[in-house]
Write a protein that binds this DNA or RNA. Structure first.
Lengths: 333, 333
DNA sequence: AATAGCAATGTAAGCGCTTACACAGCATCA
DNA sequence: TGATGCTGTGTAAGCGCTTACATTGCTATT
């Protein structure tokens, strides 16, 4: 086990001081050509790689931004996160990702871990969060931006989950649906899930239905869970329209509808939310709400980098969503 | 902007030395109860969070493992990576993820970045890699483990891509298919894609076909690309069986088959590879090769942690795959 | 020719933590 | 009672970098 070469090793080999080597690496224009060549040769020869921890400690900058997402397993965050990462990468920032498995305690732990690791800014999903965590971030003065949700009062880049879902529900109600069922992700600790259900309720109310009559089944993420929720809904309420809180649940419901030998959308309509690739792959393609994942990721990256550079505060941005027409929504029989 | 509290601040407030505070945090049993309580109270009161960089620098341990995957956007790596991360988390390790967008230069850059950030071990995908990178890892003595592929000679935990695909192709050939087309991910720099195509060729040869007659269309990841490749294949070769290098491409081909008004598997059979959730969601469900993603992730995590702890060298492990029966493979008409 | 001004480099003081070693206080044992 | 061993803490030396400031040797300017 050879000892990893340090700045000092490089300096010794190039016959210069450590300061010069450091400058060669961080501000090459401050070092005259022949010296630089000598240093670079030494760097190459030794296979030197700067120690990030030491650099971070000395310079107090890490060029790192962290993100805590509920899960990696689910395509819902993948596209936006990829765009977020690409934008950060272009600007020389690095992304640290952690996942919380939808568990607030784990999220808090991940946030602490990322901050301790030098994350200068944080991307978080949704607003539901222990105030202690918010306070921690404040005392550490780490800018945190929430994505996939919108709230004018708190820094966030996302969309209006409630309004978007209400628009979709209104469209369905216009077609004449009156028996509606909802399959939602667990609402505890998930403001987006709550807002979406609220959106359905609001639209129903506006259409003259009693929002409290609408059955809501909660199902954890996953195709299978969506299918089981569909079973329960059909057994009890037999709605003509099943509104799902996300595309994954909708895909599960759609699959299960086939098992019930129900034709979609003739016998039952099913809608999703998120507009991930999956929604266009299932047969029939899902009618869903298209979310601007990439735009959100890019905007979040730029906002966070600006905040880290001290260029002003984090603001809120509400992006537009639109109904993505598929083939799973039609008038009731 | 309050200055983040340091160990020294905590020590001052608790009326002890910094060493004692450090011990409280890292080896509580070495500190007597009343002292510890005082220290912990100070930690709490100040909202102290240890500085990871300083700790890493002083202790020369980071409890961090890095992973470089081709893309986050694609479900193919998500499940295995999630399992990898969960296993690491249980053992108190943290995961740093970077993505390379299937670009060797970016992968090399990401590897350097992760090592500089203190990754004690690395999870990499596939064996194709610039020798300079391998050498870099060796000089830094960072154990690197390859996943999603297998090679007895180099540390890897995965499966035999060639044999797995050959088994699937053999099954199809047994059904009587003779006009075969392949849609593969780009093979340059991707040993897994190459091995899978080789598998098809080997099976074809064994069945008395000329492997060189089998058309292979390369398509980048993505549903759309899979569809376009399907177009080209049908226009030129009109095979009775389309073997796809992964489920995403297969899903794209399946979708496009519908546009061609071809019934699958009556008019054309289509197979995938990977066995991700998507394969069971599309209609009809894909016949594919099921890969033990979670087992692979867990095994990789354990192997890397053992190597980091100095408990022996990294070994290779070849996991079993199996054909996952769907409804897209049937005898030719 | 003396002076200022600048560019290239060196010197050395930390950044916040861990940990080997030193030390003090106390119980234990001959 | 004095030597012996613990145990709980403190002291201080780094870990590998960055960077303010000092130094040196030039070229311009007067």
């Amino acid at each position: 086990m050879t000892n990893t070469p340090t700045l000092e090793d490089v300096a010794a080999r190039a016959g210069v001081s450590t300061a010069t080597v450091s400058r060669c690496l961080n501000a090459p224009e401050k070092v005259i050509e022949p010296t630089r060549a000598r240093v670079m040769a030494a760097v190459e020869a030794l296979g030197y790689a700067p120690n990030f921890s030491a650099r971070a400690l000395a310079a107090k900058r890490t060029q790192t931004i962290g993100a805590v997402i509920p899960t990696m397993e689910n395509a819902i965050f993948a596209e936006g996160l990829q765009a977020f990462q690409e934008r950060l990468g272009e600007a020389g920032y690095m992304l640290l990702v952690a996942s919380s498995s939808y568990d607030p305690a784990r999220e808090a732990e991940a946030i602490r871990a990322l901050v301790a690791r030098g994350a200068e800014g944080l991307l978080l999903i949704g607003h539901d969060r222990d105030p202690a965590v918010i306070e921690f971030l404040a005392t550490q003065s780490v800018p945190a931006l929430v994505a996939w949700a919108h709230d004018a009062a708190r820094p966030s880049i996302g969309f209006d989950n409630r309004a978007a879902m209400a628009a979709l529900a209104a469209r369905a109600l216009d077609l004449g649906h009156r028996r509606i069922g909802v399959i939602s992700a667990p609402r505890a600790g998930n403001d987006r899930a709550r807002a979406r259900v609220e959106g359905v309720r609001a639209a129903a109310g506006a259409a003259g239905l009693n929002p409290d009559d609408i059955p809501v089944i909660e199902a954890p993420y996953g195709i299978e869970a969506g299918g089981e929720a569909f079973d329960r809904l059909m057994e009890t309420a037999a709605p003509s329209l099943v509104i799902c809180g996300n595309d994954v649940l909708a895909a599960g419901a759609l699959k299960r509808a086939r098992d019930w030998r129900l034709s979609v959308p003739r016998d039952v309509s099913i809608t999703g939310f998120d507009g991930i690739e999956l929604s266009r792959l299932v047969t029939p393609a899902l009618t869903t709400v298209h979310v601007p994942h990439r735009a959100m990721g890019v905007a979040a990256a730029e906002a966070l980098m600006a905040a880290c550079a001290g260029e002003g505060e984090l603001a809120s941005l509400c992006l537009k969503t639109e109904i993505s027409d598929g083939e799973t929504l039609a008038p009731p029989r």
